[in-house]
Design a protein around this nucleic acid. Structure first.
Length: 514
DNA sequence: CGCTTTTGACCGGCGC
DNA sequence: GCGCCGGTCAAAAGCG
C-alpha cells in the first residue's frame, strides 16, 4: 500500500515536470523565467525522489525490525509456555530439564537483584519468581503476620541492619546506603535505578519526569504516590519559563482540608527539587513519622560531612541568629522526610516544613551548615559553606564547588574518572521557601500532632542545599552511624509491626547516643 | 466505580 | 493598562 502510494506520487511528479517542459518551449518571451522555474522544479523533483527513497528504505528497515521482533517474541512465548509446563508438572522430567529451569530461575533472580530491588510488577520479558510474589504479597499486606513470616523466611538473611559499605574508590560499584534485602534498601546510586517501590513500601512518584520513563517505562509512570509516607495528589503541572522540565504541584490528601502543598521540579537533568509548603493539620501516618526518623538521621550525617562533632552552640547565618542552647540533648530526630527519587536521579529530598517532634535536629543541621565539618574541610579542602537563609531565596550549599570538584575527589579517591562520567550527581537537596509568618516564633498556634511541633519558624520555610558527590567517608559514616541505624530500625519496625533486629554493637551505640 | 493524572482554562501578581 | 508568568481549578481521560 505504501509502495503504491510512493510510486503514484513519484510518477505524477515526473509527468508534471514533462508538461511544464513542453509548455516552456512554446513560450519564448518568458523562456528564461520558465527555465529557471523549470530548474527549481527539477530540484524539487529530485528532493522528492530522495525523500521517497529514504521513506522506502525506512519502510523496509521497519519491516525487517518488525520481523526480528516478532521472531523474538515467538521464541519468548514458547519459552514461557515451557516454563509453565515445568511448574505445573510438579516434578522434573529429567536432569536436563531440571538444570534448564534452574538456569532460567537463576537468571530471573539475577535480573531482579541487578535492579537493586524488586519491581512492583515484573519486567515483561522476565517471569515472576516465587520470591518476588511472596515479597509482593508482603508489601501489599503488611499487616498480615503470615505474610510477614513468609517474607522473613524467604529472605536470604532476614531483616537486619547490617549496613554494607562500598567504597567509591571503585567507581564501577554501586553506591548504596544501607543496602539490605530486597525490600529494605535505601539506595542512592549514580548508576542504578531507584526502586519503583522503595524500602518503606511506598510507591515512588509518578511525576519524576521523563527520565524514569526511560528507566522503568512501564512501572513508574503510573505510580503517583509520594514515598515520604504522606499521600499527595497532583493538581497541576506547569512548564516554567527557562526550564524545560515541568513543575508539578501536589497537595496532601490525607486530610481533605490539609493545606500542605508540594512542588517538584528538575532544575536540570541531575537535580530534582521538592518544595513543601504549609503545615499538616492532621496526624501524620506512622509510616511518615518513621520515614522522617530515618531521614533526619541520615540528613544530619550527610550534612555533617561525616563529622560526628557539632560543638558550636550557635549559628549566625546571614544575619539570622539561631540559638542552639541545649543542643547536647538533641532528642531522636523526627522531622524531615526523605525521598529517594524513582526518576533515576539520585536525589534525596528533605522536607523541613512538615510537622516535627522537635526542632532541634533542624537547628543542629543549621549549626553544621555554619561550621563546615572540620575533618572534611581539612582533609579535602572543601570550601566554606555558601548558605543564604534569606527569605524566598533558594540557596545552594555545595560541598565542593564546581570549580575544584576534581581536585577534591582526586584527594579523596585518587581516581574519579567514572564519577565524572556519570550523568548524575549525588545530590541531597532540601528546599525551604520563604515564610511570611512570625520570623522568630511559631508559625501557627496549633500543633497538629501530639508529638509534633512546627518547624515553620525563624522566618524560614525552606532551605535549599546540595551535597554533590558524597564523599566515601560520608557514606561510610552514614551507614555506620548509630543514630541512622536506630532511626531506620524504628522506621522499619513501625512499618512492619515487628521488631527489627539490630546487632548488639549497633544497638548499644544507639542507646548511648542522645 | 472511585481515585488519580492530565491538561487547557482561569486568575492574580508583577513588571513595563 | 497590558502582557507575561506562576499557581490553581476543573473537566476529561486513564487506571485498577
Amino acid at each position: 500500500m505504501m509502495d503504491d502510494f510512493l510510486k503514484s506520487r513519484h510518477g505524477g511528479e515526473e509527468r508534471h515536470a514533462e508538461m511544464r517542459k513542453l509548455d516552456a518551449s512554446h513560450d519564448d518571451p518568458h523562456q528564461d523565467i520558465i527555465r529557471s522555474k523549470l530548474d527549481s522544479t527539477k530540484v524539487e523533483i529530485e528532493e522528492a525522489r530522495e525523500e521517497n527513497r529514504i521513506l522506502k528504505s525506512s519502510l523496509s528497515r521497519i519491516k525487517k525490525e518488525f520481523e526480528v521482533l516478532q521472531t523474538q517474541y515467538n521464541q519468548l512465548t514458547v519459552q514461557h509456555e515451557d516454563l509453565n509446563k515445568f511448574s505445573t508438572k510438579g516434578h522434573h522430567q529429567d536432569k536436563n530439564e531440571d538444570e534448564e529451569k534452574e538456569r532460567i530461575s537463576e537468571r530471573d533472580e539475577l535480573v531482579l537483584l541487578s535492579l537493586g530491588t524488586r519491581l512492583k510488577s515484573p519486567v515483561p520479558s522476565v517471569s515472576v519468581t516465587n520470591k518476588e510474589e511472596k515479597t509482593k504479597d508482603f508489601m501489599d499486606e503488611t499487616g498480615d503476620e503470615k505474610n510477614i513470616d513468609e517474607h522473613k523466611r524467604s529472605s536470604y538473611q532476614g531483616l537486619s541492619l547490617g549496613f554494607e559499605y562500598k567504597d567509591l574508590s571503585n567507581p564501577t560499584e554501586k553506591f548504596e546506603i544501607g543496602h539490605n534485602q530486597a525490600n529494605t534498601s535505601l539506595v542512592v546510586s549514580n548508576k542504578t535505578k531507584i526502586p519503583s517501590e522503595n524500602s518503606f513500601g511506598f510507591k515512588n512518584d509518578g511525576d519524576d519526569h521523563e527520565d524514569e520513563e526511560e528507566l522503568l517505562p512501564q512501572n513508574l509512570v503510573k505510580k503517583a504516590r509520594m514515598n515520604d509516607g504522606c499521600q499527595w495528589r497532583k493538581y497541576g503541572q506547569k512548564i516554567a519559563k527557562g526550564n524545560p522540565c515541568p513543575r508539578a504541584y501536589y497537595r496532601c490528601t490525607i486530610a481533605p482540608s490539609c493545606p500542605v502543598r508540594k512542588q517538584r521540579c528538575s532544575e536540570d537533568m541531575s537535580i530534582l527539587i521538592s518544595t513543601y509548603e504549609g503545615t499538616h493539620n492532621h496526624p501524620l501516618p506512622l509510616s511518615a513519622t518513621a520515614m522522617a526518623s530515618a531521614t533526619s538521621a541520615a540528613a544530619s550525617m550527610l550534612l555533617s560531612g561525616a563529622s560526628s562533632s557539632s560543638s558550636a552552640a550557635a549559628a549566625d547565618l546571614h544575619g539570622l541568629n539561631f540559638s542552639l542552647s541545649g543542643n547536647s540533648n538533641i532528642p531522636k530526630p523526627k522531622s524531615p522526610f526523605l525521598q529517594t527519587s524513582s526518576s533515576g536521579h539520585p536525589t534525596v529530598t528533605l522536607d523541613l516544613t512538615t510537622s516535627s517532634s522537635s526542632q532541634q535536629p533542624f537547628l543542629s543541621m543549621l549549626n553544621r551548615f555554619s561550621a563546615p565539618p572540620s575533618n572534611v574541610s581539612r582533609s579535602n579542602s572543601y570550601p566554606s559553606t555558601n548558605l543564604n537563609f534569606s527569605n524566598s531565596t533558594n540557596t545552594l550549599m555545595n560541598w565542593g564547588g564546581v570549580g575544584n570538584r576534581n581536585e577534591q575527589y582526586r584527594a579523596a579517591y585518587g581516581n574519579i574518572s567514572t564519577l565524572q562520567q556519570s550523568p548524575y550527581h549525588h545530590v541531597i537537596q532540601t528546599r525551604i521557601a520563604g515564610s511570611s509568618l512570625d520570623p522568630f516564633g511559631r508559625s501557627s498556634s496549633y500543633s497538629p500532632h501530639p508529638t509534633q511541633t512546627n518547624l515553620d519558624y525563624v522566618g524560614i520555610k525552606s532551605i535549599t542545599h546540595q551535597v554533590q558527590y558524597l564523599p566515601a567517608e560520608t557514606i561510610k559514616a552514614i551507614t555506620t552511624n548509630s543514630n541512622f541505624q536506630s532511626a531506620l530500625a524504628t522506621a522499619l519496625s513501625s512499618i512492619m509491626g515487628t521488631d527489627v533486629k539490630m546487632d548488639n554493637v549497633t544497638r548499644n551505640e544507639a542507646e548511648k547516643s542522645p
